[in-house]
């Protein structure tokens, strides 16, 4: 039971950090789930996040296995509610008020100000995950190649991630 409360607390908190995307919460997700509560290893977290990029829908569904591993299917549901609930309610409320705030000059200031912060958080998340994912010249090469492919073509990101899996199976086995 105490596990459930911890899951609610942790994922409810992480929920509010996801400004600009789920990746913004990654450093804190790592620190809480790996270092503080030992729910999984850092490598497992990196794997789950990465595989999560292959699943359709929101790209942070990888939190669900963490809930399952800690407290079974109930944990999985609790984690999903804690992670998506608070921001859903916030978005609902702001959505209603947004039109009315159009005349408020700070609305645009807030948007402009949060944009660079959310990109900074995204990069910090990227740095955290890279520590576990870029583990030699082979993986660095895969990352650089994927980045180039995404920059120059309009290929679906999921296809590129899948290609990463294929390359890994062939060359990193």
């Amino acid at each position: 039971m105490s596990d459930i409360w911890t899951l609610i607390r942790v994922f409810g908190y992480l929920s509010l950090l996801t400004v600009g995307g789920g990746m913004a919460a990654f450093p804190e997700l790592q620190s809480l789930s790996v270092d503080t509560y030992h729910w999984l290893s850092f490598t497992q977290l990196v794997h789950l996040y990465s595989v999560g990029q292959l699943s359709p829908g929101p790209n942070m569904m990888m939190i669900i296995p963490i809930g399952d591993w800690v407290a079974g299917p109930v944990g999985a549901i609790v984690v999903a509610l804690a992670f998506f609930g608070p921001t859903a309610i916030l978005t609902y409320v702001v959505g209603i008020w947004w039109g009315k705030l159009a005349a408020w000059p700070w609305r645009s200031s807030i948007q402009k100000g949060l944009a660079p912060v959310s990109i900074g958080l995204l990069l910090a998340g990227c740095a955290s995950i890279a520590k576990g994912a870029i583990i030699g010249w082979e993986t660095a090469l895969i990352a650089i190649t994927v980045l180039c492919v995404l920059m120059v073509s309009k290929v679906n990101p999921a296809v590129v991630v899948l290609a990463g899996a294929a390359v890994g199976m062939i060359f990193l086995n």
Partner: peptide, 17 residues
Amino acid sequence: AALKGVAAAAVALVLYT
């Protein structure tokens, strides 16, 4: 091995985003 490849590609995806 597959997961290593997926993780490396995922890093690139975040950078690209």
